[in-house]
Amino acid sequence: MTEPTPRRYVADFHTHYANPALPALPPPNPAAALADRWTGLARRIADLDDLLGDTRRHDLDLRVLSAPPSLVTPPGRRTSPAELRLLNEHLAQATARAPDRLAGLATVDAFAGESAAEEVTRAVTGLGLPGIVVDCATGDQLLGAPAARPTLAAAARLGVPVFAHPVSTEPLSLAFADLGRFGTSLARGSVTAAALLSLVTEGVLAELPGLHVVFPMLGIAGLALAAAADEGAALTAPPPGADRAHVYVDTMGFAPTAIRFAADLLGADHVLVGSDWPIGQRAASRRRVETALRETGLTPAEADLVAGGNTLRLLGRDAPRGTAGR
C-alpha cells in the first residue's frame, strides 16, 4: 500500500503586523490607489484577529510577521529605542497567541550601530523572536554601510535571518510618480536592489559568511546585476558551496516566471513564498501558492522548499508531522 502524499507546508514570510499603538504609515508620495486604500490597510496591519482569520481561511500553515521601521515611523525621523522595545515586546506577546501559526521578526533600526546590535540580542535571546526586519536603507546609507555592520554581525552570530525591507526615497518616488503603483514599486525596488548590491561591494557577505539576508522580489534587479559580475559569483554558487553567500528572495507575489528566475539564479533553497500582506494586491492562499509553484516547473521537492521548507529552516523550526517542508 502506497504512503499518502504529505501535505505541503505553506508559509508566508512577508506578512505585516504592528502594535496598534504605532499605526502603519504609507510610504512617502504613494500612488493614488495606495493612498486611497491606506486607512483600511493600517487598520488590518494592527488587527491580529483579522490576520489569524485570514490565515485560517486561506489554509496557510505559518505567517511570519514584521513591521519594518519605515512602516511605523514618519519620514525624516528614526525609530526610537523605546518604540523598538514597544514593537518587539508586543510582537512576542502577539505571536505567543498562536505559536504554531505565527512567528515574528523583531523591528531593528539597523543603522543605529551598537545599540541596534543590543536590541537584536535582546529580541532574539530575551523575547524569543527568531529573526529581525530592517529597512534596506536610510537617508543616504544603504544596508552595506558601516553603521549597519553591528546589526548584521549580531544576526549572523545568533544564526537568525535578516529581512531587508524596501523603503521609498523622495527623489525616486517623485521621478516615477506618473507610473502610478508601478512607479511606487519601481522606486522602492531600485533602493532595494542598491542595498543588496551594497552588501557585495562593501564586502559584507564575505566578511559575515553566517549572515542570512532576505530581500523581496522587488530587488531582483540587484541579484541579476550581481550575478553577471565576478563579485556576485558567491550568490549563485551551487549548494552546498562553502563560499556561497546566503541571500534569499521572498516572492512578494505569485508570478511563476519570476519565481523560476529567482530559483534558477539562487537555487530553490534560497527562495521563500511572501505576499506583502495586506498591502499586496494578491493575498497568499494555499491554492494560489500551489498553482504558482506548479506553473514554475520546479520539482515537487524544490516546490516544497519554496512553499515553506526554506522559511522553516531559516527560523529554526521543524516541519510538523505529516507535512512536506524540509
Rank of each mutant, 00 (worst) to 15 (best):
D140G: 12
L196I: 05
V134D: 10
A164V: 13
R260K: 14
D178E: 14
A226G: 15
P146M: 04
L235K: 13
A229Q: 13
G203T: 07
P239Y: 04
V249R: 08
P209D: 09
L223V: 11
P171S: 12
G253P: 03
T251M: 03
H165V: 12
S168V: 04
A242G: 03
V160P: 01
A233K: 13
L127R: 13
P239R: 15
L142S: 09
F182V: 14
G128W: 02
P166E: 11
M217T: 03
G222V: 08
F254A: 13
G144T: 10
Y248S: 06
P150M: 02
L199G: 08
D264Y: 00
Y248Q: 09
L158F: 02
A148I: 11
A206G: 15
L218Y: 05
D140P: 00
A237Q: 04
E170R: 15
G126F: 02
P239K: 00
C136R: 08
A233Y: 00
T251W: 01
L179I: 01
G219F: 02
E231V: 12
A177E: 15
A193I: 07
G159Q: 09
S198L: 03
A227V: 07
F254G: 11
A229W: 01
F182K: 10
A206H: 11
V214I: 15
T251D: 05
A242W: 03
I220D: 07
F163A: 14
A175R: 15
P146G: 09
D243R: 13
L205W: 03
T236N: 00
A262S: 14
I132Q: 02
V249A: 10
A145R: 04
A206Q: 11
A221M: 04
L223T: 10
L142K: 06
H165F: 04
R157G: 02
L218I: 07
